[in-house]
Design a protein around this nucleic acid. Structure first.
Lengths: 91, 91, 91, 91
DNA sequence: AACGTTGAAATAGTTC
DNA sequence: GAACTATTTCAACGTT
């Protein structure tokens, strides 16, 4: 077995182990999240609404202005398209 | 209200309505499925087993489809190999 | 092979075939949805926002009042909890 | 503003903040993963293969865990069967 | 740098 | 209401 392969194997093992370790931590944190959600549920909160609250607050954090204005634009355009009554017949 | 927004709104509304319509149809079909399952249950069949049967038959069907597409690929490759007309005679 | 088994097999086959047929239709409709989304994308719409629009419009359809008021209540409660400055020291 | 709402708001805010904090940690860990993958890539490893290796090793690990939990269940059942002490002698 | 593709994660729905 | 399944969503990656 050549040194080259061995060294490569060592590095590979190192990468794999570091990834596995990180995955373990992530999995653990996700379990914590689940526990918190369960706690909120047993405290009487509606999980579906809570998830929506989290989504809204996250979006606000991320890029409130751009996102909200785009969303508003889409919704407004739809509303406008729904009510084409006011368009004059000719200019 | 600008024409540009309005036109975009029209297309957007059209997309949204088409999606909604499809969703309605899908929902209706899913209700039909539920009815059939209920009917099967009241006919004495075990739903868990029935679902398993459906799953296996679907799996078989998917496998068959995959095999066939692979077969097609092979056959096409063979056909292509049979007609190397466009190869220039010399460099 | 007894008649009983045979008759049961016939009914079972009938159930399975009806389910499969419905699944085919559902699959086809879902493909139509994907096509529409692709069309919307190539028309320049942001799919992520479009999905959000669809979600909002669907929720509005479903149970606008109850849902929105609950969501508002949650968001208001959070805001209130964030700003406990105005609470007088004693009653 | 009622106390009831306020108290609920406090709990809700607490849930939300804890979730956000966990999400931050998860995001950070995922960035670490990306860095490691990039490092592996620049060390000459094929990321596609590396991902496959990770997937297989995870699969093996999960299978092993499952086998062990099943084994534990069997052993526990055997232990339980060995100690039927609490059975009352007579009715 | 936009695109589709893939794989993983979240969410919704259904059953018991 | 708890668990399981199926669907939907999201992020990463290579590709053009």
């Amino acid at each position: 077995m050549s040194h080259v392969v061995n060294v490569a194997g060592d590095r590979l093992l190192s990468f794999v182990e570091r990834i596995f370790h990180l995955d373990d931590e992530i999995r653990s944190l996700n379990e914590d999240k689940k526990e918190i959600m369960a706690e909120a549920k047993s405290a009487g909160f509606d999980l579906k609404i809570l998830r929506e609250v989290l989504r809204i607050m996250k979006q606000d954090k991320d890029d409130k202005d751009e996102r909200e204005s785009l969303l508003d634009a889409y919704l407004s355009a739809i509303e406008a398209a729904k009510k084409p009554k006011d368009v004059p017949k000719a200019a």
